[in-house]
Design a protein around this nucleic acid. Structure first.
Lengths: 244, 244
DNA sequence: TCCCGGGATTTTGCATACCAAAACCTGTAT
DNA sequence: ATACAGGTTTTGGTATGCAAAATCCCGGGA
C-alpha cells in the first residue's frame, strides 16, 4: 500500500479555478442546499444538551445516538467532535464523549471573555451603524420588551441573543462575530436561570446602549456595554443557588 | 432498523462514575497515550498549510491526502473538519476542502480581535503573576532576544508565540487562553513576513510589559499591551507588498 | 465485610468496501 | 463562442469488521 511516498498528486497550481463570474459579490439567494447530515446531527445533539435531555456528565455512546437519530456512526462522530471544539462535550480518548459539566468558575471565565468581546463590539458598532441598522435595533428591542411583558423566559433569552448578535454583525468584523457567537451560545446555557430576574434592568440598559450607538458615541456605547455585561456577570454570581 | 424510535437507552443518571481516587489532582505524569490518528493528521496538514506546501486555494482531495499520509479517509475527514472550524481550510458542501485564502481584511480583523484579547489578558496577568511567573517571563524574553541577535526568523516567531502564550496562561482563565490560542495561531500565519523588521521594537516593548506585570501595575500592563498589539497591526499594514 | 484481580463485555478508533448524488470536465453540435 | 449531453471524479453517507483500550462483573482472599 505504501510502496513509495507519493508526492501528493499535483492538481494544477491553484487547484480548481475559483469561479469568479460577473455575479461575484451579488450575495443573491443561493440554491437551496440540503443540510449535511452531520450538521443536522450537530443541531439535534446541541438541542438535546441545552434542554437537558442529555444531562451534564452523561456518557454519549456513538452507536446509541446513531440508532436514536436513525443515522450511521460517522455523522455522529463528526458532530461530536465539533461539539467538543465548541465546549458542549468532552471527548476523552478511547472513552468517548461526555456531556460537559459546567462549573461556576468556567461560567465566570466565559462571562469575562464575553464582556471584553461585546464591549469592543459595541464600540465598533457605534462607529459604523447606519440609520437602517438603528431602526432594526429598535425593532429587536421591541421584541425583547414584549417578551418581558409576557414574562416568557425562553423568548427573553432568544431576544437577548438576537439583539447582541445583531450588534455584533454591525461591526463588520466577521472574526469577531464568529468568536462572540461561540462564546455567547455557551453563556446562554448558564444564563437561562437568571434571565427573568435580570430582565427588567437588562432591557433598560439595552435601550441606553442603542441610543448611544444611534448617536455614534463610541465611548459611551463602550462604557454602557461594559457595565451591562459586568452586571450580568454579577447577577450570575448573586443568583439563588450560587455556591458562596 | 428503525422499527420504533427507541428513547435513548438509559445508562444511569450520570453515566459512568467519574473515577475520583485518592490521587485526584496530583497531576502526575500520565501514562503515555498514543496520539489519536486524527490529531496526527491534523498536525501534519496544519504544518503543510503553514509552510505553504499546500497553497492557499488548493483543492484538498480526501483520497489523495489519505494515500499520501498512509491512512484511511476517515481520520482525514475528521482532521479537515477541525481545520475548517479553526479557519485553515474552507469546506464547500459537496465539493470538499480548499486551503483557506487569507485576505488582508481578514488579517486585520484577526489582529483587531487579538489586540482586544491580549490586552485584557495582560491586565489579568499583571494582577495575579507570582515571582516565579516573572522569572519565567524573563527567561522567555531572553530566548527571544537571542533569536533576535541570531536573526533567526522562525525562532523569533516561536519565541514571540511562547511569550504571549505564557502571559495568557498566567491569567488563569482557561477560556481566554483557548480563544487567544486559536486567534494567535492564525495570526502567526500572516505575521511571519513582518516578524523580522518588527522584531527589535517588539522585544523592547515586551521588556516594558514584563516590568509592568512584575510591578502588578494592571493599568500600565494593559496600556503597553494595547500599544504593542496595535503597533503590530500597523506594521502589518505597512509591510512591503501590502495592498495600499 | 471489603478489597483485589482476572476474564467477559462494551466502546472507541480506524480500515475497507460500496453507493447515490452532486459537481466537474470534455467533446460535440449549434 | 454557447449550450448541451455524457462520462468522470469527488463527496457524503452506509455498512461491516476488527484490534486495542476501558469498563464491568464476579468470585476469592484478607
Amino acid at each position: 500500500m505504501t510502496e513509495s511516498v507519493s508526492p501528493l498528486p499535483e492538481r494544477g497550481p491553484t487547484g480548481r479555478r475559483t469561479a469568479k463570474g460577473s455575479l461575484a459579490g451579488k450575495s443573491g439567494s443561493r440554491v437551496e442546499r440540503p443540510a449535511p447530515l452531520r450538521q443536522v446531527v450537530y443541531d439535534a445533539l446541541a438541542e438535546l444538551i441545552i434542554n437537558r435531555t442529555l444531562e451534564p456528565g452523561q456518557h454519549l455512546v456513538e452507536a446509541d445516538l446513531a440508532e436514536y437519530l436513525g443515522v450511521s456512526r460517522q455523522p455522529v462522530r463528526e458532530a461530536l467532535q465539533r461539539l467538543q471544539s465548541e465546549g458542549w462535550v468532552d471527548l476523552r480518548p478511547a472513552q468517548g464523549a461526555f456531556v460537559h459539566l459546567p462549573t461556576d468558575e468556567e461560567a465566570d471565565q466565559l462571562l469575562g471573555v464575553r464582556a471584553v468581546l461585546e464591549t469592543h463590539s459595541a464600540r465598533l458598532a457605534a462607529a459604523c451603524a447606519t440609520d437602517e441598522d438603528i431602526k432594526r435595533l429598535w425593532e429587536l428591542q421591541d421584541v425583547g420588551m414584549k417578551a418581558l411583558a409576557a414574562d416568557d423566559g425562553e423568548r427573553l433569552v432568544a431576544a437577548n441573543a438576537d439583539l447582541h448578535s445583531y450588534i455584533t454583525e454591525l461591526t463588520g468584523n466577521a472574526v469577531l462575530s464568529e468568536l462572540i457567537g461561540l462564546v455567547d451560545r455557551r453563556v446562554r446555557w448558564y444564563y437561562t436561570p437568571i434571565a427573568r430576574p435580570r430582565g427588567r434592568d437588562a432591557w433598560q440598559e439595552h435601550a441606553a446602549l442603542i441610543e448611544a450607538i444611534a448617536a455614534h458615541n463610541v465611548d459611551k456605547a463602550e462604557k454602557i456595554m461594559a457595565q451591562h455585561t459586568e452586571r450580568t456577570r454579577r447577577a450570575f454570581h448573586e443568583r439563588p443557588g450560587a455556591s458562596e
